[in-house]
Nucleic acid binder design. Structure first.
Lengths: 210, 210
DNA sequence: ACCTGAACACCGTTCAAGT
DNA sequence: ACCTGAACACCGTTCAAGT
């Protein structure tokens, strides 16, 4: 009754030109390439080509290559936020939840190394960092801040400026992630060992003053 | 008497082809470009061009662009090791020296952001990471390990595996450095605040158990 | 041994032109 | 509005040829 658009309900979208949502398809294809071969090997021509579309079709949907990378980074921050928020929720909002967040953060970077690098590795010129991207990064960061405030309210960690604590822990998990995906801590067990040690030190170091 | 090569002692090296030490000149020019415009804008043609040499001359001295980047990264690790070793030496080998090391590490990254990114940012394919590069990275890391062992011997920090402690602190300063040069902690004072807070937390956290 | 010059197979980006 | 095709100004890399 409340039928959507009236034309051709059953068949896949009419191939007027080539796609229904080319923007989304381009972004997905870019993410696939980044994941498989790294941002350095991402070429606009290949992305278009693999979608059976002209090289220049992309420019209808993204200003340039930088904009495509920025969109990829944006998507990455959304995924990252989701991952750490889930870890916090599914592990009981306490110290365990906090430590699960840290692990899921590193886990994300390890699972998507090239994508993670697009988010942080300087592929995106600072001029291109639009409000969308910065906002998405801030939103991911905010999850961390919230978790810290929550723990402070429950007397679990010391009452220093929560934003400062968040930046400190962020730097730590970020550093571990970067070293791991750079191959600097890749030998078996090395990652888990540093991760575990970092968590213990952090626990000592952030313990609420009794 | 023990004169060096007998020919033309006073004039600058004869311009046989173009240079005396083209390899060194190419590397220096590459470092200058990286520092000024970032590794993404480094082009072999421009490097050659700026030295008044053909595009292909470079291939006599480096296997390819990757090899040039690897050499740049190598140089970076040498500089970094020098910087942190100096900080340790000039600040009395104690807790003060250790904290000076941390600050000089971040300082290095902030002073040479693009160079730092070549060292860690994934510009160098892992296949290209030759023994020279890995060795130089290890040497820089070793300075940190040594400083930790020294402090343990003086009862300044807890006697956990020094390599593990080194990896942990490395990850922390690396994370801070990365976030700063990525613009994530760039607002005035933000860097110093996180740095200072990190140092305090580390002090608490690594204190020798009495 | 060290460098040049031309050539090859690629890029990102632009723009008139098509539907 | 959305896409194509050709064109432009770039790349990294190779290789015969010069000195």
């Amino acid at each position: 009754m409340v039928g959507s658009s009236p034309s051709r309900p059953k068949k896949k979208p009419v191939e007027r030109y080539h796609h229904g949502d080319l923007r989304r398809a381009l972004l997905d294809e870019a993410l696939r390439t980044i994941q498989a071969h790294g941002a350095n090997h991402l070429t606009l021509r290949a992305v278009g080509g693999r979608l059976g579309v002209s090289r220049s079709a992309l420019y209808r949907h993204f200003a340039d290559k930088q904009a495509l990378l920025a969109a990829a980074a944006c998507e990455g921050f959304r995924m990252l936020r989701q991952a750490v928020a889930d870890a916090w929720e599914h592990n009981g909002h306490g110290r365990t939840g906090f430590e699960a967040m840290a692990k899921s953060y590193v886990q994300f970077a390890v699972a998507h190394p090239s994508h993670y690098r697009v988010m942080f590795g300087g592929f995106i010129e600072s001029a291109t960092k639009d409000e969308d991207l910065m906002g998405e990064a801030r939103a991911a960061f905010q999850v961390l801040v919230d978790a810290i405030v929550d723990q402070q309210n429950n007397g679990l960690i010391r009452r220093d400026d929560p934003v400062l604590i968040a930046r400190f822990t962020w730097a730590l998990v970020h550093g571990i992630s970067m070293l791991v995906i750079d191959g600097q801590l890749r030998e078996t067990g090395q990652r888990e060992a540093v991760e575990q040690y970092a968590i213990e030190r952090i626990r000592t170091s952030l313990a609420a003053v009794v």
